[in-house]
Design a protein around this nucleic acid. Structure first.
Lengths: 220, 220
DNA sequence: TGTCGGTTTGGCACGCTGTGCCATCTGGGC
DNA sequence: GCCCAGATGGCACAGCGTGCCAAACCGACA
């Protein structure tokens, strides 16, 4: 079912390409409508209509209307983790996290990431007043954290405390999340705004530096 | 509407007590059914029936069936934050976080917290294979983090970097979350299991210690 | 005790969500 | 051209969540 019969088909038969395109059409349609009228304010039928498919087909691609934008929101994190999984264990965890993050944001592999960032910005702004959309963001981050765990475990070596590893995965995910939220909700286009890469680096360095707020004794 | 007419009524007229009792009945009924058959497998009607109210009344107390267990899951965190809000700024952030957590878990104010912990354990186990229930847990933690932010801001003093404060709130919430999840999913009743308080302290100390995994240079 | 105003509750209807089922159409191997 | 697996669309149906109105209830006052 997954493997093409002849090697020549590579990974993209016509059918497969059409399916991928349809999925992307639906995701974009959903993102457009969500940013325009909020997730609660748009019906699944509207998304399906704008994507040019039947309602029933929509539910063959996504389990709910919220799921439709999940892939757009998680693509950046997916790329980050993929880079991290390829990193060597010889440069230290902190450096690996940071360089993978920077690489995943600097459009190294193509132009796809810029589009993902644009959608993320719009969706996070819409999520500001849309509980259903926030729930998607929560889920995406939670899943990202969970998939980050084995990657970090490998980089930390076999002797690391599981609880410590788990907390690190959570904190690292938070750094990315807080950076993206701060960027997405910053005053629109005003000067002095940091790029997502700058913010991500700042957040990760806070962790690397050991959350200095905690280290300070009684009073500053 | 909110204020009782006569001072004697204190904060609990008969009507108010009945409403609080009904809310708790619904929450308990929902928690029971969720742990028995999962959140997706139980209908709102079943919850309402077990709680002894009409379906329509259920929706006057909660916006969705998932919301019904939200209060049970968030009560522990609420207590923690309340204690933290009362803490002085003279003992250092790390110590304040830890002592508030320990106090909130050790049933200082009554017996209510033990019940909350029992429900949390059961619901977290059920959430293991129930996306809808996991979504509630995500939301509760996210809201807890958001409400923790002003509390930590006060304790950190006016000069603290907002981004740093934000990351600390996220990391502290994670510590509590990871500790509770670890406790709830630990092998049932086997010996050697830590109490929630012990796990919370361990997780918070990892943060206080500065996530040593990150500090280690190339290789261990 | 009786009556009155406001609030809570219940019942009903309605639109939206998500899924099972079957008919139809299309791509790709023969 | 033939045929089959898979993709699509249409339909029915249970569940979710809300607006609306009527009945029951509580508390106050005489």
């Amino acid at each position: 079912m997954e493997q093409p019969r002849t090697a020549r088909e590579a990974a993209t038969s016509l059918t497969e390409r059409r399916k991928a395109a349809t999925q992307m059409d639906i995701a974009r349609a959903a993102a457009e409508l969500f940013t325009e009228k909020g997730a609660e304010g748009t019906t699944t039928e509207e998304i399906a209509a704008r994507a040019g498919v039947a309602l029933r087909t929509f539910y063959r691609y996504f389990r709910s209307k919220q799921d439709a934008v999940g892939s757009l929101l998680s693509s950046g994190g997916d790329r980050w983790r993929a880079l991290l999984a390829r990193a060597g264990t010889d440069m230290g965890l902190a450096r690996a996290l940071e360089s993978a993050a920077v690489d995943s944001l600097s459009g190294a592999g193509g132009v796809g990431e810029e589009e993902g960032l644009r959608w993320t910005r719009g969706l996070l702004r819409a999520a500001q007043e849309d509980p259903a959309l926030r729930a998607v963001w929560y889920r995406v981050n939670q899943e990202s954290e969970q998939e980050l765990l084995p990657v970090i475990t490998r980089l930390a070596g076999p002797g690391a405390d599981p609880l410590e590893t788990r907390l690190l995965a959570a904190a690292a995910t938070d750094a990315i999340r807080v950076a993206l939220e701060t960027w997405a909700l910053a005053d629109t286009e005003a000067d002095g705004n940091d790029s997502p890469a700058e913010l991500v680096v700042r957040c990760l360095r806070e962790l690397t530096g050991g959350l200095r707020l905690l280290a300070s004794g009684p009073r500053v």
